Computed example of a mutant assay.
Amino acid sequence: MITGAGGMMGSHLAEVLRGEGTQVLPTFFQPTINMGTVDPAISFTPLDVCDREAVRDFIRQHRPSEIYHLAAQSLPTVSWTDPWRTARTNIEGTINIFEAIKEIRAEDAGYDPMTVVACSSAEYGASLTPDRVPVTEDAPLLPLHPYGVSKVGQDLLAFQYFYNHELRCVRARIFNCTGPRKRNDVVSDFGRAIVKAMKEGAPVRHGNLETQRAIIDVRDMVRALIALARRGTAGDAYNICAEKAFRISEVLEMYFEAAGQRFPAEVDPALLRPSDEPIIFGDIAKIKRDTGWAPTIDIRQTIADVLAFEKDQYERHTA
């Protein structure tokens, strides 16, 4: 079962699981991607994780052995303007997943799924200082925006259900992840901006170029989530991150290289946040040790693939 399969990560996960022959149950509520770009052989089921009874009924009917809980209000920028929806979706939605499992286990003691909860590097917040990175899983959780706070709630709820009710779960602390289909992150924003610059002569608009981010490809991320479901230690938290951090200015330079030319660039005040972690970079020694997983895709390959995807989308919508 995948909640939030109408997002970039969940849709790629559904395709990979189906490709390996696994019966996959992707659910979505308000897609953040163009669903037409997903393998048409995959059948999606509408499901609002905030609907307690619907979540319980779905899990009771299908009894999934692996649950990937990715559904979330996942944008820090939106969390500043709508902290209510952010907290409700991320925290209440997680409670509904675990309460459903707990209720079904009361009827069927043999039901014991592994739940991978998509947590976030945003939980570390003020702990992400240059002298403390790459940050390890035992760093203080000091989020700097409502989204980060909601993810701390999700993370600690998962631990509490494991500790109090012995529900198997792992807390996947996901760092910056991107790839084709992504929206509203720096890599996909740059991809679309570069295409507009190429096709329309528009300047490349950007936010803070001085922050540093370790950006992982979605294909590596999906492999990590599956590895945690099958080889992770129940109750534990795991960072999933790329192995090198880059300044956002460097990411923009990589796009110019991929495009084969430079374009005018200018600051967009709308892309500047009230607070921004100077560096986001996580230590992944633990997931490597416990599962054998490691990232394999270079960021330049990711950028090339995102640029190709955005070119294709532009041409399709302007044809």
Rank of each mutant, 00 (worst) to 15 (best):
T3G: 06
G4D: 08
G4E: 10
G7P: 13
M8A: 09
G10I: 08
G10S: 11
H12A: 10
L13Q: 10
A14K: 02
A14W: 06
V16N: 01
V16R: 15
G19Y: 11
G21Y: 07
V24S: 01
P26T: 05
Q30L: 13
Q30C: 00
P31A: 14
I33Y: 07
I33C: 12
M35W: 12
V38P: 04
D39W: 13
I42W: 11
F44R: 06
F44T: 03
F44Y: 15
P46H: 05
P46T: 01
L47C: 13
E53M: 11
V55C: 05
D57C: 08
I59H: 00
P64Y: 14
E66W: 06
A71D: 04
A72E: 09
S74C: 08
V78Q: 06
W80A: 04
T81Y: 09
P83T: 12
W84G: 03
T86R: 07
T89E: 04
T89P: 04
G93E: 00
I95R: 15
N96L: 09
N96A: 09
F98E: 04
E99Y: 02
A100K: 07
I101H: 01
D108T: 03
G110S: 13
G110I: 07
M114W: 07
T115H: 04
C119T: 10
C119Q: 01
S120Y: 09
A122N: 08
E123F: 01
D131W: 13
P140D: 10
L144F: 00
P146I: 07
Y147V: 07
G148H: 06
G148D: 04
V152H: 02
V152C: 12
G153C: 03
D155M: 06
L156K: 11
Y163I: 02
C169S: 15
R171A: 10
A172N: 10
N176P: 12
G179V: 04
K182N: 14
K182F: 05
R183D: 11
V186L: 15
V187D: 09
S188C: 14
D189H: 13
R192C: 03
V195L: 11
V195Y: 10
A197D: 09
K199R: 15
K199W: 01
A202S: 14
V204R: 05
N208W: 06
I215M: 04
D217E: 09
D220E: 11
V222E: 12
V222C: 15
L228S: 03
A229N: 06
A234M: 05
A234H: 10
G235M: 10
D236F: 05
D236Y: 06
I240D: 03
K244I: 05
I248V: 15
S249W: 01
E250N: 08
E250P: 02
V251H: 04
L252M: 15
M254H: 10
M254L: 15
Y255P: 01
E257N: 12
E257P: 01
Q261L: 02
F263P: 00
F263Y: 15
E266L: 13
P269D: 11
P269R: 04
S275D: 11
D276V: 12
P278T: 10
P278H: 07
F281S: 02
I284K: 02
R289C: 04
G292H: 05
A294M: 08
T296H: 12
D298T: 03
A304E: 14
V306P: 05
V306K: 03
A308V: 09
T318K: 13
